[in-house]
Design a binder for these strands. Sequence first.
DNA 1: GATATCACTTTAAACGATTAAACCAAATAT
DNA 2: ATATTTGGTTTAATCGTTTAAAGTGATATC
Lengths: 337, 337
Amino acid sequence: MKKVGLKEIAEYVGVSIALVSYVLNGQAEIKQVSKVTADQIKKAAKQLNYRPNQIAKSLKMLKTHTIGLVVADINYRFSTGITRAIEAEAKNANYTVLFGSSNENEETFAELVNVLINRQVDGLILVPAENTQEQIKMLQKAEIPFVLIDRNFPEIKTNHITLDNRKAAYDATIHLVKQGHKRIAFFNYKTTFNHLHDRNRGYQDALKDSNIVFKPHWLKEINSVNRQAEMQQSLNNMLNGDEPCDAAFFATDTLAISGLKYLNKQKIQVPQQVSVLSFDESEAFELFYSPVTHLRQPLQKMGQAAVSTLFELINHNKINKQISFQSDLVIGQSCRE
Amino acid sequence: MKKVGLKEIAEYVGVSIALVSYVLNGQAEIKQVSKVTADQIKKAAKQLNYRPNQIAKSLKMLKTHTIGLVVADINYRFSTGITRAIEAEAKNANYTVLFGSSNENEETFAELVNVLINRQVDGLILVPAENTQEQIKMLQKAEIPFVLIDRNFPEIKTNHITLDNRKAAYDATIHLVKQGHKRIAFFNYKTTFNHLHDRNRGYQDALKDSNIVFKPHWLKEINSVNRQAEMQQSLNNMLNGDEPCDAAFFATDTLAISGLKYLNKQKIQVPQQVSVLSFDESEAFELFYSPVTHLRQPLQKMGQAAVSTLFELINHNKINKQISFQSDLVIGQSCRE
DNA sequence: GATATCACTTTAAACGATTAAACCAAATAT
DNA sequence: ATATTTGGTTTAATCGTTTAAAGTGATATC
């Protein structure tokens, strides 16, 4: 079976390539192609099993109908959720999503972005890795349409879709306080990410507003490269000081899972000995013996917003949107009453 | 910032497009381009921030250096694992992966395959959805290089990478028997998938070889559209008959999670009241109060095998490989001793 | 009978790259 | 003095589309 292009159809029917193109693009009417020829062409196309070469089409049209998506790590629940949402939304508009995972690595991120640009994606949706500000600035200079999601750099003015991280952390902390907790530990990554700092802020603001004096050692900043070990140590410190904390609030699902693993190993009962609350979702949260109370991000809405913002950007050019979404606090049984 | 192509560089330096192409493709030596011009060109390319248009390149070369991957559902642990492995392997060879998820839907699968072909991927790695035999045959007729992974259709001779599902189920069942279980229920999807049937076979063969007479009602076939409800009913039947089963063996991670959720809700103790064993992996398995004994698939090896098989196919054409991998039984604490 | 209009159809340039082949001037060989 | 080689460079076709513009033959208009 040889490749069949417009040329083959044209030869088969005995007309010019142009006519075939017109007909197969639904321009038969406007170009006044005779019904007879049009039908012949359509029939031939089906018979020969014609598949338009999108590569050639893209080259001519200067549009690929493709958007590039770079997530931070395909193993995050956030990534799969947002990918699903974005793919579905893109498909509606007849766009394809080219997808890559930076694994939180700066170079991989840059590389992926470059690969995608070279493939002439019409725009990008990015979950930037740490320290990728230069890449982002480069995109702006090159006038490539893109929108950030989940994370943003406050020093760079970009279109972005984020969670209202401060509010989420604030509300969750208040929830813990209302449950009677007085000493709440917060586990976050040691990071330069603004969105994670916002979570710290929300947590601390809530304590303040509840007239609880924040003790610096309640805020556990964990190095991601050594997560499990540091988590163990932090949890130990938290539980065994002379004023042990009575609740652990985790800034991400990955941190929570690390933490829960260790609590399990140590046979520490949740919520009897310690209450647990976490950002994000996880299959494991539901299945934990005390389903974990968590902050669910509206991934679908966020994905939709990212895609529609990107489309605006692609079509009408210059816009400036910073959209922030609220999370839901999903109550489980991991916080003592 | 306007787009810069070979033309712009050529004009800038004052040479022909051909020279620029030669130099930037590392053909300066063999085409005897003078050092001076070559350096000028390289410098200009960098200065103007030239990005080769892969679309144009692909059109000319009839190669896109892209492989298409269609997984069954991006939310499966299998999918993310295999995607990671495939992406890493492809990247080594300077290939990009175009990725899509069929959500186990026949039409979506066909659509995705078509989109990928139209984008002229050099080859496909597919986790076929149910009843997609015709699509697969079409690919063969069209002589498009592809390899199936995870699942295959025995009636169609294809290249495929699978798990030795019969053996895996067999070994796991034997494990349960050795732990003293006499009445082992097996939960599988009601499906036409061969790879899942193999799991049934392995389970039954193991019972036979252990001189346990298999009772048909031990084999629970669950309709995926109504999973949670059917799972509840099946588990109830299994636990509450006059001869209740003492072990539940799940054919997939998704089934196990459904099952565990219900066991949790009913406060049925694992493994005291019932032992649990499952195919696949899950964050939740580790975190369950009795970490779930499970059959881990060698995703990385499988991904590598898929990519390298595909590359052989793309390069040296006709080959015929059916590779089957062994799984590891990861012992947890969900099976009573 | 000449011209304009209409209904269809073809021609050919372009998109941005690759590359065989042709070209040209200077150096070397005969 | 003429031919050949060498080093360096350009020309032009090509990949599979799209589409403005031009072409064609028949019919309608004055």
